[in-house]
């Protein structure tokens, strides 16, 4: 294995518009791999895991690079983690997403890596997935003929697998509206901070006085896909938040996940450590939700 070079030649196309990209995709389908930041794809190509005959680069399509706040938040898939961090509405209101972008690997990867690339790679450990799940993210997928909108939960199918069909691409990520009564937080545990996560978790809570009105919890790297922990959420909804209740929820999260042993951790450790992470993240999200 030589990671010094890309061994296989390929055709490289750089459309300027979404229409041009979709047209090219519809004509070449399986032969094409879409490249955004390239931080995952180029590594896979270097180690010979994939060798696509053609790369379609999105980097010149400025219509895929934006963050617009109107009712909720609409984000172009080509937006980088660094650009998301610099967006005031994200750092102020979508705290869990802001924290996740800071937790992504390194400053260099945050500059290069894109939100869409992170999702389309289909990794159960994708840092952006848990926060997008707790803000009830939706994704817009387009091919040359039509568009469809899926919830992010429907988008993830298995490790490395998404609902994207050949010829289709992700064109927008949409989050629901949040207000000052929503508090959210994200935590990630890796061996060192630049690593992929062993476990990641995001929590969003809508508070009304002393009650938890809404609660969403999502976890990453502990199941075949990034997932919502709905049973755990239901324990908190409508309740007064107390230490004993948070303790109960954290045990439920540990029950609800289906982790595996892999290079980064063991199933046993993930089930143990997720309890502590759930406790801390729920507490933090609760404190951040204005009473």
């Amino acid at each position: 294995m030589n990671t010094h070079i890309l061994p296989q030649p390929f055709e490289y196309v750089e459309p300027q518009t979404i229409d041009e990209a979709l047209q090219y995709l519809s004509e070449h389908k399986e032969k094409v791999k879409i490249i955004a930041g390239g931080t995952d794809l180029l590594v896979q190509m270097k180690i010979g895991k994939v060798s696509p005959p053609c790369l379609l680069s999105l980097s010149k399509i400025s219509a895929l690079r934006y963050v617009i706040e109107e009712s909720g938040l609409r984000m172009g898939p080509l937006t980088t983690f660094r650009e998301l961090q610099m967006t005031p509405s994200i750092s102020k209101r979508y705290t869990a997403l802001f924290e996740a972008t800071k937790a992504v690997s390194t400053a260099q990867i945050q500059t290069m890596g894109t939100l869409g690339g992170n999702l389309c790679n289909g990794s159960p450990a994708a840092d952006s997935a848990p926060p997008l799940l707790v803000f009830r993210g939706k994704v817009k997928l387009m091919d040359a003929r039509e568009e469809r909108i899926l919830s992010l939960e429907e988008f993830f199918i298995g490790p490395g697998k998404t609902a994207l069909k050949a010829g289709e691409m992700l064109t927008e990520i949409e989050l629901e509206e949040v207000n000052e009564r929503t508090g959210s937080a994200f935590k990630k545990l890796g061996r060192v901070s630049a690593d992929l996560s062993k476990v990641s978790i995001a929590v969003a809570i809508v508070r009304k006085d002393d009650l938890c009105k809404e609660c969403r919890i999502a976890v990453g790297a502990v199941a075949p896909v990034p997932m919502r922990a709905r049973k755990s959420e239901s324990i908190l909804i409508g309740k007064k938040i107390e230490r004993s209740l948070i303790e109960k929820v954290s045990h439920q999260v540990s029950q609800e996940i289906s982790p595996i042993d892999d290079i980064r951790s063991t199933a046993w450790y993930r089930r143990e450590v997720v309890k502590a992470m759930a406790r801390e993240t729920i507490q933090l999200a609760w404190e951040r939700a204005a009473s």
Binding site: T3, H4, I35, L42, L55, S57, A107, Q108, M112
Partner: peptide, 16 residues
């Protein structure tokens, strides 16, 4: 630095 921001040049296509 690419336009002032740090990137990894071993994971960047020159053509891009």
């Amino acid at each position: 630095l690419l336009d002032g921001e740090p990137i990894l040049s071993c994971m960047t296509l020159a053509v891009a």
